[in-house]
């Protein structure tokens, strides 16, 4: 075989090698990226009216805590999550439902009867009775739930995702 044709054969093989390797890399690589990031692309939304029991259970004037659970499917497993919050019944029908999740890093806040505020145990933040930030690092007031009263029972609207 002459030298020149030898070199062109080499180049040909080089091109084929690179081409086939890239095809294989892409044919496997692209699905693999989809496979790895798939859970991040799934939208998990859920919403429902959660019954909290008869309205008279909630006293006028001071916040009373409540909690409920929702289950969601993560992969092949059902995860049961608990959520909590406070109901402040200002008048007979004027209600304020606050989430107990601190808006800073999701610690659970507690109602401090003496100081009349919600205290977060993590970074010493305080929220007022309407959920507004009094001091500390939280960027926003406590989340509110929409409420409704049906036949004397209190419901809150839960939304996720």
């Amino acid at each position: 075989m002459a030298g020149s044709s030898r070199i062109s054969r080499r180049d040909f093989v080089k091109v084929v090698t690179i081409a086939l390797s890239s095809v294989m890399g892409a044919a496997l690589g692209i699905p693999v990226i989809g496979y790895l990031i798939d859970p991040a692309l799934k939208v998990q939304s859920s919403e429902a009216w959660i019954p909290l029991g008869p309205l008279e259970n909630f006293p006028l004037g001071s916040p009373k805590s409540f909690s409920f659970t929702r289950s969601s499917v993560n992969g092949w497993e059902k995860t049961v999550n608990s959520y909590g919050g406070f109901i402040l019944r200002k008048t007979e029908t004027d209600l304020l439902a606050l989430s107990s999740r601190c808006t800073h890093l999701s610690c659970s806040v507690n109602w401090d009867e003496g100081n009349n505020n919600y205290a977060c145990p993590c970074h010493a933040a305080h929220f007022g009775s309407e959920g507004e930030v009094l001091d500390g690092p939280p960027p926003a007031p406590l989340d509110r739930y929409e409420t409704k009263i049906e036949e004397g029972n209190l419901f809150i609207f839960f939304q996720k995702g």
Binding site: V13, V16, T17, M24
Partner: peptide, 17 residues
């Protein structure tokens, strides 16, 4: 080995792929 064998190896591997 390069390029004669590798060329054949690659074709076979690609076919298996």
């Amino acid at each position: 080995f390069w390029p004669d064998s590798i060329y054949k190896d690659l074709l076979v591997s690609f076919a298996l792929f």
